[in-house]
């Protein structure tokens, strides 16, 4: 080994430590016997048992899941429509404005988004009586306003690389525009739409700032619960919860990643075979 590769190895180790040491520590402490988070008191799984008896955390997790799923679905529908409008409808009146509005939440400070949504909800309740109070509805609407922007960008960039002559060919073969969308465009951009859905789900799942503006009594999402518990001192069952979440995410991404790699390999092989069989 020469000096250069020593340096590279050292930097790699440092990089991985920087990224994963906090998570490893957290996982380790989730098996801590002691109630004191930073003092090792022996191995135990009792905090996992504790976690599953904690109705507050379980309720918050279920609420977060429901909101994230509803938000992701709504944001995907709206974001896909916005992406389509921006990528396929040419230079219609008000297009620059829509581009700006659709993507503004990407750069807007969350505090501003949260505050302005809160003001809107209060004003609406006074004017038309809806939404009644603040809770699951207002949180979902608030999450959709910013996660829709991410879906829009993902769908729009997928459409930008989609050969427009595919849609023209379908129209040329007798399909009306609505049929072209459902038979050709939608199936081809479906992976991008699914990616947008997952992105919107994740954004909603761990949002704290905007949620804390528009949440109401009795509708605390998981991040809100964790944050308020941590302010009173970290309890080890939070570590257990976090460990389970890390495990879920890691499993999902690993399985999905392996599946994608296998698909790509199979496809590459088929393409090569097709080229080799060229007469």
């Amino acid at each position: 080994m020469n000096r250069r590769s020593h340096f590279v190895t050292a930097m790699m180790v440092a990089g991985f430590l920087f990224l994963y040491l906090p998570i490893v520590l957290m996982i380790a402490f989730s098996f801590n016997e002691s109630r004191l988070v930073t003092v090792w008191g022996g191995f135990s799984t009792k905090w996992y048992g504790e976690l599953f008896r904690n109705q507050q955390i379980l309720g918050a997790a279920w609420l977060s899941f429901k909101i994230a799923a509803m938000n992701a679905t709504g944001a995907t529908v709206l974001g896909t429509l916005a992406g389509l409008a921006l990528a396929r409808f040419g230079h219609f009146c008000g297009r620059p404005l829509l581009t700006g509005l659709a993507t503004a939440p990407l750069v807007m400070p969350e505090v501003i988004t949260g505050l302005s949504l809160l003001l809107l909800f209060v004003a609406m309740e006074q004017a038309i009586g809806w939404p009644e109070g603040r809770g699951i509805t207002t949180i979902t609407i608030a999450h959709m306003t910013f996660s829709m922007a991410y879906v829009t960008v993902v769908v729009q960039s997928r459409l930008a690389t989609l050969d427009e002559s595919l849609e023209e060919a379908a129209m040329d073969l007798g399909a009306r525009p609505a049929k072209v969308f459902f038979l050709i465009t939608l199936p081809i951009i479906l992976p991008a739409i699914l990616a947008g859905w997952l992105l919107a789900f994740t954004l909603s799942w761990d949002d704290l700032v905007i949620t804390s503006f528009v949440t109401g009594p009795g509708s605390s999402t998981l991040p809100v619960v964790i944050f308020s518990k941590v302010r009173l001192g970290v309890s080890p069952d939070i570590n257990a919860l976090a460990t389970l979440l890390v495990l879920a995410v890691a499993t999902f991404t690993t399985v999905f990643g392996l599946y994608m790699i296998r698909q790509q390999k199979r496809r590459d092989l088929e393409v090569q075979r097709a080229i080799a069989a060229n007469e």
């Binding site: 002559s165 060919a169 129209m171 040329d172 199936p187």
Partner: peptide, 28 residues
């Protein structure tokens, strides 16, 4: 275009990537 008695072969061929050869040809 969807009502003209005209069909076009595109420079990029524009075959629908999610359909088999049979389905591509049957589409029209």
């Amino acid at each position: 275009p969807y009502e003209r008695p005209v069909n076009m072969m595109f420079q990029s061929y524009a075959l629908f990537p999610h359909m088999s050869v049979q389905k591509n040809v049957a589409f029209g």
